[in-house]
């Protein structure tokens, strides 16, 4: 059987919010290493990769590798029934066709369980090549969310340009043009407030704002976000999930034709 107990149930609620705008359904692949999820959005322009390590769970048991196809809309409805303080347990029998979510209140005076039907998803797994990125930018996640929200008012595309001076986000459209320049933080007193840029070579790429805004639904997971860019390859937007894992979004660029 499979059983994973997470003391900080709120993390799973936040993961749900981070996935459900982009994905309708996905396979949760469980092994003794942990839980992995990888899926493309419907338009096949972006890919989401989630990893939750077994060690991050209060209790984790996976007798046999298990892939659980879930409708994320339904799963989101169930997770909305959990309070932020609840302990959340996911469990399933081997080759079961349902999964059960158990929510325990901190003082155990209320225990809820919800059983959900699983789906058969023949999801193909994509290989993500190891890449040594030309630029990586770490910045406060709230800052990135604000930039995406503000600039997406000006155009459907955003240009992200990274040089040794800093990183510039730009968008242009009918009402005009917006540019936001972030300089590398001079002093890094509070780690998560810093803007840290590692640049091997300057890079400038164009991306669709709507996907970037969908990625920022993960903002509540981590105080900082990391962007990785190389010429002509997908952007990576990564949010760490406490000490249990991460969610990574890959977005294909828009190319001058």
């Amino acid at each position: 059987m499979f059983e994973a107990r997470l003391l900080q149930g709120s993390l799973l609620k936040k993961v749900m919010e981070a996935l459900k705008e982009l994905l309708n359904e996905a396979a949760w692949d469980c092994s003794d290493a942990g839980i992995q999820l990888q899926a493309m959005d419907n338009s096949h322009v972006s890919l989401v990769s989630l990893n939750l390590r077994a060690e991050g769970f209060d209790k984790y048991r996976c007798d046999r590798n298990l892939s659980m196809g879930m409708n994320l809309g339904s799963m989101s409805k169930i997770l909305k029934c959990a309070s932020n303080e609840d302990i959340i347990t996911i469990k399933a029998q081997d080759n079961a066709d349902t999964v059960t979510f158990v929510f325990e209140s901190p003082d155990q005076d209320k225990v809820s369980d919800y059983e959900m039907k699983l789906m058969n998803l023949d999801q193909e797994h994509l290989g993500i090549p190891e890449t040594d990125y030309a630029c990586t930018i770490r910045l406060p996640s709230s800052e990135f969310a604000r930039i995406c929200r503000d600039l997406s008012q000006f155009g459907e595309s955003m240009v992200i340009s990274c040089t040794k001076e800093g990183v510039r986000f730009s968008a242009t459209g009918d009402i005009g043009t917006g540019n936001i320049k972030l300089a590398q933080s001079a002093k890094v007193d509070k780690e998560e407030e810093a803007v840290v840029i590692e640049m091997q070579e300057p890079v400038s790429l164009t991306f669709a704002c709507r996907y970037l805004n969908s990625f920022t639904k993960a903002t509540s997971l981590s105080k900082s976000v990391q962007l990785s860019m190389s010429p002509e390859v997908p952007l990576v937007v990564e949010y760490k999930i406490e000490d249990i894992g991460h969610v990574r979004y890959y977005l294909a660029p828009k190319i001058e034709d």
């Binding site: 493309m40 096949h44 322009v45 972006s46 890919l47 193909e124 797994h125 994509l126 290989g127 993500i128 090549p129 595309s157 164009t206 669709a208 390859v233 997908p234 890959y250 977005l251 294909a252 660029p253 828009k254 190319i255 001058e256 034709d257």
Partner: peptide
């Protein structure tokens, strides 16, 4: 005009 590319152009079925 910028053309949106598919992610499957970069990542192939493992």
């Amino acid at each position: 005009k910028n053309q949106q590319v598919k992610i499957s152009k970069f990542f192939h079925v493992a």
